[in-house]
Design a protein around this nucleic acid. Structure first.
Lengths: 337, 337
DNA sequence: CTGAAAGCGCTAACAT
DNA sequence: ATGTTAGCGCTTTCAG
């Protein structure tokens, strides 16, 4: 068995409270401090966080529920959060719900039973019912990337609307007007925002959005492949396409390659996320980049802040995206009259 | 405050032990069972795993320490493990040590303090000192992908030697003899195995391996780029290259693209991991694939087994890789005499 | 089958 | 500054 504070109390001849005080940064006589430190070393003592947690009603553990861990966007955010949280003594329990509402609910319940101190969620379920237990327990909830209407909690979002609007704007400036979009699932918050950005950009340029140019994918590679094939088949006049997440961007590139079509000669492409993939593409892909690191840092800091009891009003942070140019956009020559 | 078994004991008029017995699947009178179930529902009772953990000296939590979470190989294994472990009531605390030995040690110590029931590690440190605490505590350790000499624990590995030997064999069969390899860091177990596979394949074909064809990368995209540039500059006669992990494969493709060199006309390429990336490449990349899902399943099952007290001899599992063909290999025409 | 009581390792009053 | 004590919520003897 591992040593306990009792053992070190015995060894040093001090009381339990003194040891506990030492462990929690209290003041004590230099001599006793030394004694304790030596005993700790000799007995190889390590605080039992489980016991501490039972007493303090805090587990120093944060639950994270995301749709897909092998989604690079998710993974990069998590890395950043986990690092910061661990440095503050917090463990992160990550649950991948495979974009499945039922699994998501189960995961949240699971984490509730584990008594995590707070929950970070990139929600699949849009009604927020799965988070009820945490709301009732008044434990902090932070939403990433997607807002849930009517749920009062901190959110760290990305300005998807502007991101897509600007990207479509670039295509328009290059003379494109028959522009396709591979959007996400209709009920997903970010997908709606991105689609809205697409529509706005077109309207502002005096182009009427047509439904035939809009495909709804499921944010997977396979989905991206299917969508691009459909779009191309349905719209021989389409000259450009915007893809609204990384996995579908990869799928689009695969689909285009396998159809034997050329970027940008036959079709211009703007993708999403993952700078490395964009550079590995031939030709180099123009993409919208998301501030994953920033998101992770912000989420972690807000969580730490909430846990330490800050009651201020819930924040909704909206971070800006970037744009990485490539060689996947070709200017459309307008027919000279 | 959340309800405790005391509350439900009071509400039902039963003793604590009866409730506990119910919670742990014991036998009790049908009538009491119903009473308890109703009380649980009414009070919204959920077992406090922290308290249970303090008593049972088990946290139902597994620690996972890996070099890089945004390494697709790691992420895919983790997804699988986490899923299985959670289904069995185990939480997974994941720590990304950024391929840094010091952070790795810290992470393991952190998890030890958290009293995780077992540890899963894709080790960065090759001497195994960081795992001492778990060895002393006799808690199960499972190593993924890399063995540590002298450490008696379960390992789930991949047959890297055969994988690379076969891949190089394919290049040789296509007439290549000036074959480069972008290997991993020299001290890493898998890198050594893969390099050995390369050497063996050449030797068996009667080709003497030359140091100038061997580059040591660091398993990152940047590293891959640097290595391919060096290799090409140093060896104008090189006709093929094998890359020994996914990130460096991506880096290699980026590097080759940016040098303006053509695959496979100027250089044949065999990469590693990630089927989707291979398909997204132009031309489609031939790659060695790793059985990530199988690894994850095996690791989770072995862990569950060990935790439940199975004392049988430690296993070393060696899983086989696959090969996905592409259009990145060109036959070398031998000069006719 | 069920109840009473002890105790897991720690923290937090409260005394001293 | 330090010791004493109670108790966090659960499991687990031990009686009954």
């Amino acid at each position: 068995m591992a040593a306990t504070i009792k053992d070190i109390a015995q060894k040093t001849g001090l009381g339990l409270a003194t040891i506990s005080s030492y462990l929690n940064g209290g003041n004590l006589r230099e001599k006793n401090r030394e004694k304790i430190e030596q005993a700790i070393k000799e007995l190889n003592f390590e605080v039992n966080e489980t016991a501490r947690g039972l007493k303090t009603n805090k587990t120093k553990t944060i639950g994270v529920v995301i749709p897909e861990l092998n989604n690079v966007f998710c993974a990069e955010i998590i890395i950043e959060m986990e690092d910061i949280l661990r440095q503050h003594g917090y463990a992160t329990i990550i649950c991948d719900c495979r974009t499945n509402k039922d699994i998501e609910k189960e995961a949240i319940d699971f984490l509730y039973r584990k008594r995590v101190d707070g929950i970070i969620n990139m929600p699949v379920n849009v009604d927020g019912n799965h988070l009820k237990s945490f709301i009732k327990a008044k434990k902090p909830i932070i939403l990433i990337d997607r807002k849930i209407n009517g749920l009062d909690c901190d959110c760290v979002l990305v300005d998807n609307l502007t991101a897509v609007k600007d990207a479509i704007g670039i295509l328009i400036k290059n003379g494109h007007s028959k522009i396709g979009i591979i959007s996400g699932p209709e009920e997903i918050f970010t997908a709606q925002e991105r689609l809205l950005g697409y529509r706005l950009a077109l309207l502002e340029a005096g182009i009427v959005p047509e439904e035939r140019f809009i495909a709804h994918g499921d944010y997977t590679i396979q989905g991206g492949m299917k969508c691009i094939e459909e779009l191309i088949k349905k719209n021989p006049d389409m000259t450009a396409v915007f893809v609204s997440n990384y996995e579908m961007t990869m799928g689009t590139v695969i689909g285009i390659n396998e159809l034997g079509i050329k970027i940008p000669e036959n079709i211009s492409v703007i993708g999403f996320d993952n700078i490395e993939f964009a550079r590995a593409c031939k030709p180099k892909l123009a993409i919208v980049t998301q501030p994953t690191k920033k998101i992770g840092v912000n989420v972690a800091e807000i969580m730490l802040n909430r846990i330490s009891g800050n009651p201020e009003d819930k924040k909704i942070l909206k971070l800006q995206t970037g744009f990485l140019n490539g060689n996947s956009i070709q200017e459309v020559k307008l027919p000279s009259i």
